[in-house]
């Protein structure tokens, strides 16, 4: 069986094993959907200044982007660090093509987690925040590629971080603050225009900003463009930045993982 098929199967089994653990499943659901509900209730239904869209609806694509981002850059490193502690990573090293299969599997299980979270958040978002489904087939397409490319942009990176830290607790400690900061400056919760130019420049280097932008382009009407930098949806640039992160990570991560010594 080729490494990709084997990795797909691995990820599927991995995820079923995780979901069949009721505590883990509950944690994942309450963690993401629960946070979303609290945020929406907290923000209320005031409109975004200068746009005919509620704050809650504006925030929803950003929240989705952050869910993808944190699943890839926090959840995944913690899983990998745990796998290393348990010896799962070492087991993969003893198998032919084992690391590739392992990484594919982790990418798949991360994708499944993201898909489940996204579906649940949207299910809640429609009645609660007045979010409507993407209006045209083109916007559905945008939703699909932004989710996939956004996932691919963070998964290899998350894998690298997971292979560098000593354990799951260290991963959580190391990542919590930077990802909170990045969330604040990436315009996922409120329009970026409020922030100084330097901060906006830094934010645009990271995938989170572009993913948030892509998802807003899929969900929000063009009437909110007044709140976007440059008043347009630069989807080509979003694809380029997310793609560059994905490719860069995919080249570096396997190389680095092969060098991991610990069991």
């Amino acid at each position: 069986m080729n490494a990709t098929t084997l990795g797909l199967r691995r990820g599927w089994t991995e995820q079923l094993n995780l979901w069949s653990d009721r505590k883990e499943l509950l944690n994942a659901l309450v963690g993401t959907v629960g946070t979303y509900v609290v945020l929406v209730l907290f923000i209320g239904d005031d409109n975004v200044p200068g746009a005919p869209v509620s704050m809650a609806a504006f925030m929803t694509p950003g929240f989705l982007a952050f869910a993808v981002f944190s699943t890839g850059l926090m959840g995944l490193p913690m899983l990998i660090a745990a796998d290393r502690e348990e010896g799962t990573l070492m087991r993969a090293r003893t198998l032919p093509r084992g690391i590739r299969v392992y990484l594919t599997g982790r990418a798949v299980s991360t994708l499944l987690t993201i898909a489940l979270n996204a579906a649940l958040v949207l299910l809640v978002a429609v009645p609660l925040a007045g979010v409507t489904a993407p209006a045209t087939p083109a916007r559905w397409f945008t939703l699909a590629w932004v989710l996939v490319l956004g996932t691919l942009a963070v998964v290899p990176l998350g894998a690298m971080i997971g292979s560098l830290v000593s354990g799951p607790k260290a991963a959580a400690a190391m990542l919590a603050l930077p990802s909170m900061l990045l969330m604040l400056v990436s315009g996922v919760m409120f329009p970026l225009e409020a922030l100084p130019g330097l901060v906006r420049g830094i934010a645009q280097f990271f995938p989170l900003y572009w993913q948030g932008l892509g998802l807003r382009a899929a969900f929000l009407p063009d009437s909110v463009l007044a709140t976007e930098l440059g008043h347009s949806w630069p989807l080509g640039r979003a694809a380029a930045v997310l793609g560059a992160w994905a490719v860069g990570g995919m080249v570096l991560a396997p190389w680095l993982l092969r060098r991991v010594r610990g069991r």
């Binding site: 094993n17 995780l18 348990e86 010896g87 003893t94 069991r263």
Partner: peptide, 9 residues
């Protein structure tokens, strides 16, 4: 290997 604890789930 000695004392493997991998893939517990």
């Amino acid at each position: 290997m000695q004392s493997w604890r991998d893939h517990p789930r």
